[in-house]
């Protein structure tokens, strides 16, 4: 079994075995093409989500579009 790491995702702690941001987003049941991710305070370009490696203690902000005025 892959090594589990602990991330802070949208303010909450979360354990995962995902190696990349794209894998983690899919693990959540979301499509990487429909979200934007901030990785330790920096925008993670969508084109690089498949390659963006996660390490223990990383902070992620995952956002998407919702209704608004």
């Amino acid at each position: 079994m892959a090594q589990q790491i602990t991330l802070t995702v949208n303010g909450d702690a979360r354990k995962t075995a995902a190696a990349t941001i794209a894998d983690f987003v899919r693990e959540l049941g979301l499509e990487p093409q429909k979200v934007a991710v901030e990785h330790n305070g920096e925008i993670s370009p969508r084109s690089g989500l498949e390659a963006a490696a996660l390490t223990d203690g990383d902070h992620l902000e995952i956002v998407h579009f919702v209704g608004g005025g």
Binding site: D12, L28, G29, V35, E61, I62
Partner: peptide, 17 residues
């Protein structure tokens, strides 16, 4: 549209898109 955190606890909810 607004930009907000995705709902990690229930990501299967319908979305605007």
């Amino acid at each position: 549209v607004a930009v907000r955190r995705v709902n990690i606890s229930d990501p299967s909810q319908p979305v605007l898109m």
